[in-house]
C-alpha cells in the first residue's frame, strides 16, 4: 500500500516536471490558452458535480474555439508579439467565447430535449397498455377490470391522440 502511494507521488512529480518544462518552452501558447480558456476555468469553478459535465461541455467547445488561434500562432510565429496580436483581435475573442457559449447552450438545452424524448416514449408505452386494456374490456366486459375498474377512465379519443 505504502509503495503504491509512493510510486503515484513520484509519477505526479515526473508529469509535473515534464509539463512544467514544456510550458517553459511554449509560453506564448500557454498565454493564449490560459486567456482563451478562461470560460472553461469559470465553468469549472461553478461546476459542483463530481462528474464535471458542465466543464466538459464548455471545455470541449471552448477548446475548439481556441485551437485555430493556437494553430495560427504555431504556424506563423510562435512569439509573444504574435500571441498579443491574436489576443487584441476581437474576432479571436468572439470565436473563443462564442464556442464556449455554444458549449453552455448545449449543456443547458440537452436536459429539456431529453425530457421531451422520455415523455414521448413513456406516453407511447402508456398508450399501448391502455389499448390492450381496452381490448380486454371489449372482449371480457367491464368485469375484467375488477377492483381496478375505477382506476382511470379509458378515454378513446385521448388514447388515440396519444397513440398517434
Amino acid at each position: 500500500m505504502a509503495s503504491n502511494s509512493a510510486s503515484a507521488s513520484s509519477l505526479k512529480v515526473i508529469v509535473f516536471t515534464i509539463v512544467g518544462g514544456l510550458m517553459l518552452f511554449t509560453l506564448p501558447t500557454v498565454l493564449l490558452l490560459g486567456l482563451g480558456m478562461l470560460p472553461t476555468f469559470a465553468a469549472m469553478m461553478v461546476d459542483q458535480r463530481r462528474e464535471k459535465y458542465t466543464t466538459l461541455c464548455v471545455g470541449c467547445m471552448n477548446f475548439v474555439g481556441v485551437l485555430p488561434f493556437v494553430a495560427r500562432l504555431w504556424s506563423e510565429d510562435h512569439s509573444y508579439a504574435k500571441a498579443f496580436e491574436i489576443m487584441v483581435d476581437p474576432f479571436a475573442w468572439l470565436t473563443m467565447l462564442g464556442a464556449a457559449g455554444l458549449g453552455w447552450c448545449i449543456y443547458l438545452l440537452a436536459p429539456g430535449v431529453v425530457s421531451m424524448g422520455i415523455a414521448m416514449r413513456i406516453e407511447q408505452r402508456i398508450g399501448r397498455l391502455r389499448r390492450r386494456q381496452r381490448e380486454l374490456v371489449e372482449e371480457w366486459g367491464p368485469g375484467v377490470a375488477g377492483a381496478l375498474d375505477n382506476s382511470e377512465p379509458l378515454d378513446d379519443t385521448k388514447e388515440k391522440g396519444r397513440d398517434g
Binding site: 466538459l56 461541455c57 470541449c60 448545449i106 440537452a110 429539456g112
Partner: peptide, 13 residues
C-alpha cells in the same frame, strides 16, 4: 441531459 450534453460536446469538440 447532462450526460448527453457532455457526449455531444465531446463529439463536436
Amino acid at each position: 441531459g447532462e450526460q448527453a450534453a457532455a457526449v455531444i460536446s465531446g463529439v463536436v469538440g
